[in-house]
């Protein structure tokens, strides 16, 4: 297969970026998308050019490190992570446009690499159960209805890749935040902090510069773990309740 690749190049956060075209021949349909970029980089290095920087690590769809906007779609056409996308999903001689995640809260570091530490700060604001190591009860003292445990796991499956933000016209992190609020809020262990958690996490999300949710649904449509927008509805319900119970977080 042959492709024309239109790739975003940007030397550093402060410099302007631009698209650069590259031609690549002899691409096997069995290659993953990132392996295709590896081969392009090998060619660039051999020619003495600066290779394209992109984030990746596990290359098996679970670490959440990789993420490219491919032809306008976060992670490309297959609703999977970029590393699990294969070249057989593209047509021979296609032009493929490759961009980084674009969102205020994800500044570009170089080329296709962005800074997603804003996600960590959302978790720091309350995305945990406050339990220290040791002194916990036996694991089976607390039965959890299978349905709840399963639904909790649906939210916990989030890999924190940020595709939801990249796909959202508002650059909102509602799906990411709601998945964690849902994961913990569906479990009995998560109840004591349930309403504080949602207040603090949503507050932090706003602080980081993520937009609000207007129910467009692009987030869920690109999510490689198929996390449902129901989690957003669930979080909004908790948020309204929390505002009544806990009052205005700004005053805390």
């Amino acid at each position: 297969m042959k492709f024309t690749l239109r790739i975003w190049r940007q030397k550093s956060p402060k410099e302007w970026g631009r698209f650069v075209n590259y031609k690549l021949d002899d691409v096997s349909p069995d290659m993953s998308f990132l392996e295709m970029l590896d081969i392009l980089n090998e060619e660039l290095i051999t020619k003495g050019d600066d290779p394209i920087a992109f984030d990746h690590d596990c290359r098996e769809g679970i670490c959440g490190m990789c993420g490219l906007v491919i032809n306008g779609i976060a992670h490309g056409p297959e609703q999977t992570t970029t590393c699990q996308l294969h070249m057989r999903s593209f047509k021979h001689v296609d032009t493929i446009t490759i961009e980084p995640w674009r969102a205020t809260a994800f500044p570009v570091i170089k080329d296709l690499v962005v800074d997603r530490t804003s996600f960590d700060r959302i978790i720091q604001s309350g995305g945990y159960i406050s339990v220290s190591t040791g002194g916990v009860p036996d694991a089976n003292t607390l039965p959890i209805a299978k349905d709840n445990a399963d639904m909790s796991m649906d939210g916990a499956a989030c890999i924190g890749c940020g595709a939801c933000v990249a796909a959202c016209p508002n650059g909102s992190a509602m799906l990411f935040t709601a998945a964690k609020v849902g994961h913990l809020g569906l479990l009995p262990q998560g109840q004591p902090e349930r309403y504080d958690r949602v207040l603090y996490m949503v507050h932090q999300m706003d602080e980081e510069g993520f937009g609000g949710c207007t129910n467009i649904g692009e987030c869920s449509a690109v999510c490689p773990k198929e996390i449902s927008m129901d989690f957003i509805a669930r979080m909004n319900r908790d948020l309204i309740k929390a505002n009544f119970i806990k009052g205005d977080i700004e005053k805390k």
């Binding site: 945990y128 040791g134 916990v136 039965p143 299978k146 445990a149 909790s152 479990l187």
Partner: peptide
């Protein structure tokens, strides 16, 4: 420890 942290291990129908 992991259950206390909220790790959603698989459960049977009795919970």
């Amino acid at each position: 420890q992991c259950v206390a942290q909220g790790v959603p291990f698989a459960r049977d129908y009795g919970g």
